[in-house]
Design a protein around this nucleic acid. Structure first.
Lengths: 234, 234
DNA sequence: TTCGCGATTATGTATAGACATTATCGCAAC
DNA sequence: GTTGCGATAATGTCTATACATAATCGCGAA
């Protein structure tokens, strides 16, 4: 046997995953597990705390521990960095800033981001291209109040998303994924027919309550998909 | 001050999130933090283990602990249960099984699911309707080898997805999100025009290596979007 | 019957110490 | 210089104990 911690954890996870202990089933008390595995309560406690943090079980003082009800399902999608993805696929990547300007928030954008109308934002439109084929069109707002240095950044080496990610850590993010028919301007930029289904990913990020950036990325539906793999437990 | 554990954790998270400790920065050794906070090493250790499990820091024996490099971004999307969503919005929900049959896997589906060609699957087509407006069209395969009782289930009370979720815990899931133009059959079922952009969510789930189910859910692009909120730290 | 309150009990947090594990560092031999 | 190896220093795991906290149970009073 290896570490007791891992063994207890595997044991309990197996029983939950196999359905032997269905949702709502009461798990033995810490002192019972302690006796069963012949270890101290701290060891059992650490395992149970970990499982609780992972959402596999629910603990309540005095009442005990039960297997958690399955929550509403989550899809975890990996948003790959274009440069990375291109490097892996062995194709050439480049990006082009189509528009750059400093604007003040209009009412709709203020509503979306929770910022006051008129807040100064750096507005960027970027086209991501792989092997001369447009892969995505990105419209981004960067809050100059939170990230003033973005105003001076030429975005020559890295596209705005990559630059921001390694400059400003974010604490909260909101994602929206939609499908839309390409309007004529978008279709032209992405070199698809007007009306082609496109995947639109909107992401807004905050850092400790301060709005950082909003990105709207439009992918041609026939060239891109978002993929994710997920296991509820490590 | 409340609990030391939380205080240390908040402190370190704050320093990482604010950028004071950028990725790669070496975090004080456990014995240093122990001295700084005047607590035992176990307390520090538990905090650091938690942060490491959350991917915020990277720990290596002898080398010490450093702030983790930002990984590629993830979008975490909540897939809401239709009945729940409808109840919250105060509208009527119902579903209709359009087709039901037992089929054997063809080559393409076998490829996708990693099952042998010819494996027996329960095939269901379900339309989800809210206030008489179609909201989604779901095509689902259920592996009868893994979930034989699905063959007898009439799916009168709960739609297949809900039924499965509370019957079979899953250990792995794969998600793909795409945008497609509605073909005429789909358009008719969803009561939209042919060619309307639709969001397609594909999910395949396994339980301990055994294939459970594949669902392809098609949402009309103008009626639905996937939304998610995410904080990297709890 | 119902309400309130104290005893009970299971989990939450923390401590001090012990030994295990494993990279790294630095010195010595080549 | 390069290599090898032992000392060292960091995290990983575990114990035994203590006290805190909170929810439930059950008893007694209204």
């Amino acid at each position: 046997m290896k570490h007791l911690h891992q063994r207890i954890r595997d044991d309990i996870e197996a029983r939950i995953m196999s359905g032997e202990w269905p949702p709502g089933h009461r798990i033995p008390y810490e002192h019972e597990l302690m006796a069963e595995y012949g270890c101290s309560r701290m060891t059992v406690n650490k395992v149970m705390s970990t499982l609780a943090a992972n959402g596999l079980i629910t603990r309540r003082r005095r009442a005990g521990t039960v297997v958690a009800e399955p929550s509403s399902q989550q899809a975890v999608l990996q948003i790959q960095d274009f440069a990375l993805e291109a490097a892996r696929a062995g194709v050439e990547y480049r990006f082009k800033i189509l528009h750059r300007g400093i604007d003040r928030l209009d009412a709709a954008a203020a509503q979306r981001t929770g910022q006051p109308v008129g807040a100064k934002m750096l507005c960027l439109s970027t086209l991501h291209v792989m092997d001369d084929v447009p892969q995505a069109f990105e419209q981004r707002l960067i809050n100059l109040a939170t990230v003033p240095e973005a105003g001076e950044e030429p975005f020559e080496e890295h596209p705005p998303g990559t630059w921001l990610l390694r400059r400003v850590p974010w604490t909260d993010a909101e994602h929206i994924v939609r499908a839309v028919n390409a309007d004529s301007a978008t279709a032209k930029r992405l070199q698809v027919q007007t009306g082609t289904a496109c995947l639109v990913l909107e992401r807004r990020t905050w850092q400790a309550g301060a709005f950082v950036t909003e990105a709207r990325i439009t992918y041609p539906g026939d060239r891109h998909q978002l993929v994710g793999r997920f296991s509820p437990v490590a």
